[in-house]
Amino acid sequence: MAPQTPDDHEHRTTTLEAFADTIIPGEKRSAGDRAVAGVSRGGGAVQAGAIELLEWDATGITGGLDDFAAALNRHAAAYAAEHGIPTGDGVPPFVSLPYEDRAAMVRWLTAPGHPEKALWVSLALFCNMAYDSAAHMSTVDALAAGHPGLTSMGIAPPDADGLWRFRAWSYGRPLADVHPATTESGSPA
C-alpha cells in the first residue's frame, strides 16, 4: 500500500466523522465544519469521541478504516452523480453530501441484502458506542469530563469510589395482582 500523505489521513478522518455524525448527529464545531452536518444541537458521535474509538485497535476495525473511507467516498460519488448533486469542492464526496443524502446512503448500505451490510453495521455500532457508552474511555472519567452522550442520556454519577449504588430503587408497594397460577416459590404453575 502506498504511504499515507497528511491529506489522505485528513480526508479519511473527515469522511469517518461525517459517517459518525450521520449515526448520532451533533452541532458544528466551527462555522467551517464540513464533516459535521449540524442537524442537531449539542454534541453527537464526533464530539463523543468516535474517531478516537475507531482508531483504537481493540475494536478490530482500525486496520480497515482506510478502506471504509475510500469505499464510502466511492459510493458517495456514484450516489451524487446519480442524483445530480455537485461534489468536488475540496472535501471528500461523502462529506460534500447534505445530511439527508448521507442518511439515505447509510440506510442503503445497512439494508438487509446489501453485500457490504455487515461492515457498515459494525462501523455504525462503534460510532453509536462512542456516544452511548464512551467505550474508548473509563466511564467515570467520561462522566467527569462531561462526555456529551453519557451526559445527554442523564447517566447518574457514581459514588466517590467509582461504583454505582442507588439508595432508593422501589415504589415499595404492590402494584398489580399476581397471576392466580403462581407457585409458592414464585414461578408459573
Partner: peptide
C-alpha cells in the same frame, strides 16, 4: 414488592391499568 425496581413497578402498574396481572 419492596425488592421490585422502579422499572418493574412501572411495568406492574401499567399491566394492572390494562387489566392484567404482573409477578
Amino acid at each position: 414488592w419492596d425488592d421490585v425496581s422502579y422499572a418493574g413497578g412501572l411495568w406492574a402498574a401499567a399491566c394492572r391499568h390494562a387489566g392484567r396481572t404482573a409477578n
